[in-house]
């Protein structure tokens, strides 16, 4: 699974950092950096973070795989 954070919307509330610190990190006071590829053992935590983000900025989903349509 992959994530992308809409950083135009993210306000640095850092709930995601708190819930899934291996995937989301703050860089400085409020700049968010994250790992787009979610390891399987982090999936549950990332789901929680996605639900908890107050501005719904996190999208979790499958990558496009060109062969299955």
């Amino acid at each position: 699974m992959r994530i992308v954070v809409d950083l135009t919307r993210c306000q640095g509330y850092a709930q995601c950092v708190f819930l899934a610190p291996k995937v989301f990190q703050l860089h400085g006071e409020e700049g968010l950096l994250y790992s787009p590829a979610v390891p399987d053992d982090q999936l549950e935590r990332v789901r929680e973070a996605t639900a908890a983000c107050p501005v719904q900025a996190i999208l979790l989903g499958e990558e496009v795989s060109p062969d299955d349509r």
Binding site: R2, L33, A37, L59, G61, E62, V64, R69
Partner: peptide, 25 residues
Amino acid sequence: KQVLLGQVAADTTGLPMRRNPDAEW
């Protein structure tokens, strides 16, 4: 950002889909 910092590999930034658009790629 993450890739040049060495935190994330360049081939792992594939965009997640909101839904499968059932397209021919």
